[in-house]
Design a protein around this nucleic acid. Structure first.
Length: 496
RNA sequence: GGCCCGUUGGUCAAGCGGUCAAGACAUCGCCCUUUCACGGCGAAGACAGGAGUUCGAUUCUCCUACGGGUCACCA
């Protein structure tokens, strides 16, 4: 028996940005296809002429390329089932709609927008929901003559799906199982709009069939329209694909409630996340786990590991809250795992922006930064003290655990200064040995000397790296200058 | 409001009739240590509630509560 080829598709409408929910859908579609040796297809759904956004399709290409979700067929690379842009397939849908009219699974509707609007208002007012399915099916039972008359008069029309008035429809979903609804709940939804364009619901079904899509993977916001899809497939006599509905991604509101992830929760598009300093690998890894868990229960996974580990039965039904803390952790994991040169390359723009043409040991800076940042965007704030010594309070010299005071700090700074001045070879090892030797000679704890030195040369309470590293980076001359400034600050303060 | 879906620690989640109910993030403590990180060790913290079914329910069924989705000539 020939096994049917797995074909999934990502069918975004070009809105100009990639919401993480969409990205996760694309990822799962890709993973399902690739984990079963199938094909992943990109199809652009741009049937809404009023919402066209310039350059929006490019955003989709760019995003997918950046995260290594590579499509096998699509508008830019073609394929055997093109075109892959719905606006280029327009002539295709109408005949299918008419076929359905002929099969009496659809009908012409001549209702005006105004009538439908007032209908909706009165319906929402009515407590009894006289026509629960939204539309009152006014045009459903027109006679053949009436219809051909109106068509002959060029009356604008739409085509609606003719839902069964009784009975039930059951459909199966790979994650939600079997779901049954009463047919009288189903609206006679619009298939073809008055401009001749198909609606999303209709184009989707037609295209998925024509493109031989085996798995329809989409957000659970479409779950309640799934029965209508089933009925459409049945009306055409087409094979129904496997539905895989994905739970929503939610965000936590300041007041503790949750709702669909949106702007007010923070960065919600792929672009936002990149701007906030997240790596594509971290983003992909994190969102892969938002609603799915591998059997082995491991967390850090590359794309190829995701492909080999992915399976539909690991997808969960309940919605997940987007957790920026966890994303940050993934990001830090990926940052720490980078070869130092890669880290350096990514950090370089921040160094250059901050330091201009100052000569500093970037490699050393990268070494101290790599284990400490969760996002590259944190770099400037963390090391700006290297560029310029901030004005700081002498209180910084007081540290309980190090047992340092202003007085002790002043004393130690004065004592260590000659050693620093006379240090010939300014290497990290030498600097380290010199300071440690000082502590041993004076029979003091390392902190007694390290703390005042680090404070004097940094001017901040918390620094990435310690006194030794910072001295190394700053260089001898600047270090001496800063220590002298520290001595002066303390002397003035203590009124010497 | 009708219909549909969901509900294991603060968050992501494992579990698929018998477990002292995994693990990760976050939190807290200890160790390492010249601050901060990294790393190591440890602590606290959960099956929404109620009925059934069963020798036995987190797991199966029903009800309630709460949360979410959906009700367009948008996708």
């Amino acid at each position: 028996m020939a096994v049917k080829e797995v074909r999934t598709r990502f069918a975004p409408s070009p809105t100009g940005f990639m919401h993480v929910g969409n990205l996760r859908t694309a990822l799962y579609e890709y993973l399902i296809a690739k984990s079963q040796g199938g094909k992943f297809i990109l199809r652009i759904e741009d049937t809404d002429q009023e919402r066209l956004v310039e350059g929006a399709t490019q955003v989709i290409y760019d995003t997918l390329a950046k995260v290594s979700i590579i499509h096998d067929e699509g508008p830019d690379i073609g394929g055997p089932f093109g075109p892959y842009v719905q606006s280029e397939r327009l002539s295709l849908y109408k005949p299918y709609a008419i076929e359905l009219v002929e099969k009496e699974h659809a009908y012409y509707c001549f209702c005006t927008k105004e009538r439908l609007d007032s209908l909706r208002i009165s319906n929402s007012d009515a407590e009894d929901n006289s026509f629960p399915a939204g539309y009152d099916r006014h045009c459903r039972d027109f006679s053949k003559d009436e219809i051909s008359n109106k068509l002959a008069m060029n009356s604008p029309y739409i085509i609606r799906q003719k839902m069964p008035l009784s009975g039930k429809t059951t459909f199966n979903d790979a994650v939600y199982g079997s779901i049954t609804v009463d047919n009288d709940e189903l609206e006679d939804q619009v298939l073809l709009k008055s401009d001749g364009f198909p609606t999303y619901n209709f184009a989707n079904v037609v295209d998925d069939h024509l493109m031989k899509i085996s798995h329809v993977i989409r957000g659970s916001e479409y779950l309640s329209s799934a029965p209508k899809y089933n009925l459409l497939y049945e009306a055409f006599g087409w094979e129904i694909p496997l539905y895989v509905h994905l739970s929503l991604i939610q965000g936590k509101n300041p007041d503790g409630t949750v709702s669909k992830l949106s702007k007010r929760h923070g960065a919600t598009s792929f672009e936002d996340l990149l701007n906030d300093g997240y790596l594509t690998e971290a983003i992909i890894n994190y969102i892969a786990l938002l609603g799915w868990c591998p059997k082995e229960n491991i967390e850090v996974m590359s794309m190829s590991e995701l492909i080999s580990l992915f399976s539909i039965d690991g997808i969960s039904k309940s919605p997940a809250i987007f957790d920026y803390d966890k994303l940050r952790w993934f990001n830090a994991e990926y940052i720490r795992a980078m070869p130092i040169l890669d880290f350096q390359n990514r950090a370089l723009p921040y160094y250059k922006e901050l330091f201009g043409d100052m000569l500093l040991d970037y490699e050393k800076i990268s070494e101290i930064l790599q284990p400490r940042i969760t996002q590259f965007t944190q770099i400037p704030a963390m090391i700006s003290f290297l560029k310029e010594l901030p004005t700081y309070s002498s209180e910084f010299y007081i540290h309980k655990k190090m047992k340092t005071t202003k007085e002790s700090s002043l004393e130690k700074l004065k004592e260590i200064l000659p050693n620093i001045v006379s240090l010939a070879d300014w290497s990290q090892q030498n600097i380290h040995d010199m300071l440690i030797k000082f502590a041993i000679d004076k029979e003091i704890k390392n902190g007694q000397i390290m703390w005042p030195v680090r404070t004097a040369i940094s001017g901040v309470e918390v620094t990435p790296g310690g006194a030794v590293e910072i001295l190394t980076i700053l260089g001898k001359e600047e270090s001496i200058r800063r220590i002298n400034m520290g001595i002066k600050l303390l002397e003035d303060e203590l009124e010497y």
